[in-house]
Simulated assay, not measured.
Amino acid sequence: MSFTLATWNINSVRLREGLVARLMTQEAPDVLCLQECKSPVDKIPLEQFQALGYHHMVARGQKGYNGVAIFSKMPIEEVAAEDFVSLGHARHIAGRLDNGVTVHNFYVPAGGDKPNREVNEKFGQKLDYLTEMRDYFGANAPEKSILVGDLNIAPREDDVWDHKKLLKVVSHTPVEVEHLADVQGAGDWVDVTRADIPHGNLYSWWSYRAPDWESADKGRRLDHVWATPDIANSAHSSRVIRAVRGWEQPSDHAPVFATFDL
């Protein structure tokens, strides 16, 4: 069977319910993973999504902050929801689809403004979060799995608009890139997006601070789709739906898609 998966930091699922429904209507992914839902689970607006065929959901939420959800046209069963670093944040949910694929949806901490854990507690929390992700997948070797989400790190030089200028900016510092590589290595994860699109600048986030975001194009690839080697070769048609960043009252992220033939 073939199915299409998308990941999108929505920056409030209740505020942007209409945008979620628009993406569901226009692009119709079989599985849609959202981050930064900023809603308790019981307040997520399900009625419109269910009317569009998304009858199944697993989620973790909290009022006003964080929050992750997986909406699916296929049955999905919750299999994990880890609170790495014991932050009490809703940053991870995992569900197993009825085709046997496990989907991990992550919202990794952004890490604050200063890339120094001695003066910025949030940066330390981010690095510790990634370390615990590494240890989790090292101890629980994933199979037939997909990992998606806003990982808040742009690892490659061509994942940012200016590599040299951003080397000391949170999301592209060498220590963050190293920590993310450790997570990837622990699960033997394949970066599906870059396997499909190996060359050239590729972004999924553009700051709200830039009113001319499209022409300036000072973006970063913070949103990722990874897969375990046993299914990674089945992935294709990876893409960032950049136009979504230009919708009315948008999230500052654009959704990232991939299709899997299993």
Rank of each mutant, 00 (worst) to 15 (best):
M1W: 09
S2F: 12
L5G: 07
W8T: 09
W8Q: 06
V13Y: 05
L15Q: 07
L15M: 10
R16C: 08
R16P: 10
A21K: 06
A21N: 10
R22N: 10
M24Q: 12
T25A: 12
E27C: 15
A28Q: 14
C33D: 10
Q35A: 08
E36Q: 14
E36K: 10
D42Q: 14
K43F: 11
Q50K: 15
A51S: 15
A51F: 09
A51H: 15
L52T: 12
G53F: 08
Y54N: 09
H56P: 08
M57P: 14
A59F: 13
Y65T: 10
N66Y: 11
A69I: 11
V79D: 11
E82D: 10
D83V: 09
D83W: 12
V85H: 15
G88H: 12
R91K: 14
H92Q: 08
H92Y: 08
H92L: 09
A94K: 10
A94Y: 05
N99L: 10
V101M: 11
V101Q: 07
V101E: 05
V101R: 09
V101N: 08
V103W: 10
N105K: 04
N105T: 06
N105P: 04
F106L: 13
Y107E: 01
V108Q: 02
V108D: 00
N116K: 14
R117E: 13
E118M: 05
N120T: 03
G124I: 06
Q125V: 11
Q125A: 11
K126C: 02
L127R: 12
T131W: 09
T131I: 07
E132Q: 15
R134W: 08
R134L: 06
R134C: 14
G138M: 12
N140F: 11
N140H: 15
I146C: 09
D150A: 03
L151R: 03
N152F: 05
A154K: 01
A154I: 00
R156P: 00
R156S: 06
D158E: 13
V160D: 03
V160R: 01
W161S: 03
K164H: 07
L167Q: 14
V169Q: 05
V170P: 02
P174Y: 05
P174V: 05
V177T: 13
E178Y: 03
L180F: 15
G185L: 04
A186N: 13
G187Y: 02
D188I: 02
V190T: 12
T193E: 01
A195N: 04
I197E: 02
P198V: 02
H199Y: 07
L202Q: 02
W206M: 01
S207L: 00
Y208L: 01
Y208E: 00
A210H: 00
S215E: 04
A216I: 03
D217P: 00
K218L: 00
R220A: 04
R220Q: 12
R220G: 01
L222W: 02
H224F: 04
A232R: 12
N233F: 03
A235K: 01
A235S: 07
A235G: 10
A243Q: 11
R245F: 04
G246A: 12
W247F: 06
S251D: 06
H253F: 03
A254N: 02
A258Q: 07
T259M: 09
T259W: 05
F260V: 02
D261E: 11
D261N: 13
